[in-house]
Design a protein around this nucleic acid. Structure first.
Lengths: 109, 109
DNA sequence: AATGTTTATCGTAATATTGCAATATTAAAT
DNA sequence: ATTTAATATTGCAATATTACGATAAACATT
């Protein structure tokens, strides 16, 4: 026991949960915000930007990449990471849709 | 070691991470969607709706409540849970803001 | 008061995440 | 070819999450 029962939920539910789970850590939020802030994408300086060791940052980047939130291009011996707009669009749509539905009913609580 | 270093990040970053982390599980996404779908909020039937045991559902509800995503009113011996529109609004704003910023630059990857 | 219904908590096992030192890998620079 | 720089991987300890059976607490019904 202890393993998430993903098979019992819809693909859409799992897909949204994958994205939100990947964003469910302040370091990964900070990484996303940094990637959005900088104009250039040569992003090795995330390690300098955040108070975490290099292997830790690397691991967080890997999780964001696995979830499809960022993309990475090898560029010489450094790597150009940037945000995948499609994933953000998915989340934007999802929450906008929920917000719209909520506006249409008078919540009891 | 192993504990998240929340103190190194901004309140906003931690706040968004708290919300997304709480949504980072398909069961909790399913619970949210169910709460939005049903018109009445008498929500004990979440247990019947989802393929998880009652204590597990109760635990997930607690996490959603701790994160501020849902509210719960005691109503006799059952409880009326419903989605907190403010939290959803926060997420909608956050992702809309990011999406807008991304549209303004030509991503290199 | 006794019983049933609903939700929460406790205890515990299985699994996953977080963080980093040490090390490996890859490519650029000398 | 060596050295330097940038990332990734490995291995491990600490911590957190997931799931559920058993049980408790709170209220309703009889």
């Amino acid at each position: 026991m202890g393993a998430t029962k993903t098979e019992h939920f819809t693909d859409k539910q799992n897909s949204i949960a994958t994205l939100t789970k990947a964003l469910g850590h302040p370091a990964r939020i900070a990484i996303m915000e940094y990637l959005i802030k900088v104009d250039t994408c040569i992003c090795g300086d995330i390690v300098n930007e955040l108070p975490l060791a290099q292997p830790t940052i690397s691991q967080h980047l890997k999780e964001l990449k696995n979830a499809g939130l960022i993309k990475g291009n090898i560029e010489g011996n450094s790597i150009c990471y940037c945000v995948d707009e499609k994933a953000i669009g998915k989340l934007q749509d999802y929450f906008t849709n929920i917000a719209t539905k909520l506006n249409k009913k008078n919540n009891c609580c």
